[in-house]
Design a protein around this nucleic acid. Structure first.
Lengths: 199, 199
DNA sequence: TAAATAACAGAATGCTCATTCTGTTTTAGT
DNA sequence: ACTAAAACAGAATGAGCATTCTGTTATTTA
């Protein structure tokens, strides 16, 4: 059976670009503080377009979360999976994180934390998705740490699985302190001390 | 000038108990997901009583945050300021934290994180209050670590100020992972590894 | 005992929001 | 050019919310 859809009027917006805008809004303000109207304004896409393309707010959020995780993966964590990954790669990831959280005009926030605090307890599906992303983060750290260990940058007795989970947790701790207005140097110090303990 | 207030009908509820209930609701669900109606239900106190006693929702929340911080101080951090504080005291604080976050029926959440994510960027007063509480936490950790160091439980080269901030950050990282459904053993492992690095 | 008024219970108000509905515009195929 | 239907803009709907208002009850003081 073939379903024939006749395209009579062409869509005037780019769903990918719209989703990017939604990701920004959600990660900055969280789920409930971001209204569909906010997204309409920010994207310039009509309600009709948003609902038609993304379903409803909950589904749009899930797609935003996917995209966010994807972005984190591509922009940060993929490097850790390459065989020449070093401690510097890990440092860079944290430095970018600190940058994001300490940006003067508007802290970028963290969609993972918003999801964990606002939605995870009430929404098992979303919680599982989130947990999967976080575990992936930990795994990427572990792989990176293993490479760094091979380069002699990490102590031999460090369990990279445990350390990967620890660094994942650190990412969230930093974000919470950043949102609370802690100085960049404080966050940098936490990163330095955390990593120093593994060297 | 004296203002005479004639108390014609006695209040039938205990504001302290009501605030305790509000603290629980807010720390479990955060600010916006907790309605005044929820608080009316949970406390059995009428709207009239809540508004008359606590002002409005925002002010009630601030008082809840104060109380929450007070409770954390009294129940956990005060011990760290005593001269015989040891690494065990610090371990206990983290164990209680993990217990709170991994409670099967209903994760207790963390009012600090809710405040940081939901309100801090929009409400400078609240952000400053929160920052003060967090710094106090870090300081308490530092003092406890200093005592533990004197007992030989912490390495001499550990900077207790830095380490106090690191442990504060760890508290929040744990909570986020707990909310996302990570297993108790994972959180315990993070605590063990974090503290092991200081021994 | 009577009067005054704070405490109370819950209805009313006005707002914001997610979602749906309505009427209009656009464009592929005839 | 004409038609059909998808895309659109924005009004309408209905629910939930914080807060205020209204009428009732209880208790102290005179």
């Amino acid at each position: 059976m073939t379903i024939l859809v006749r395209m009579v009027r062409t869509r005037t917006f780019d769903p990918t670009a719209a989703l990017t805008k939604a990701v920004n809004l959600f990660s900055c303000k969280g789920y409930s503080e971001t209204s569909m109207e906010d997204i309409v304004q920010a994207t310039g896409v009509s309600r009709y377009g948003l609902y038609g393309t993304f379903g409803n707010k909950r589904e749009l959020f899930e797609q935003a979360l996917d995209r966010y995780a994807d972005g984190m993966g591509k922009n940060s964590f993929l490097r850790l999976l390459e065989p020449d990954a070093s401690l510097d790669h890990i440092r860079t990831i944290f430095a970018e994180r600190v940058d994001d959280m300490c940006c003067e005009e508007e802290t970028k926030g963290c969609l993972f934390i918003h999801t964990a605090m606002e939605l995870a307890p009430q929404d098992n599906d979303l919680r599982d998705v989130l947990q999967k992303f976080m575990k992936r983060m930990g795994k990427a750290f572990s792989v990176g740490l293993e490479s760094a260990k091979a380069r002699g940058e990490i102590r031999d007795d460090v369990d990279v699985n445990d350390a990967g989970e620890l660094l994942t947790s650190t990412m969230f701790g930093l974000a919470v302190l950043g949102r609370t207005g802690f100085k960049r140097e404080t966050l940098d110090g936490i990163v330095d001390n955390t990593l120093a303990a593994m060297q």
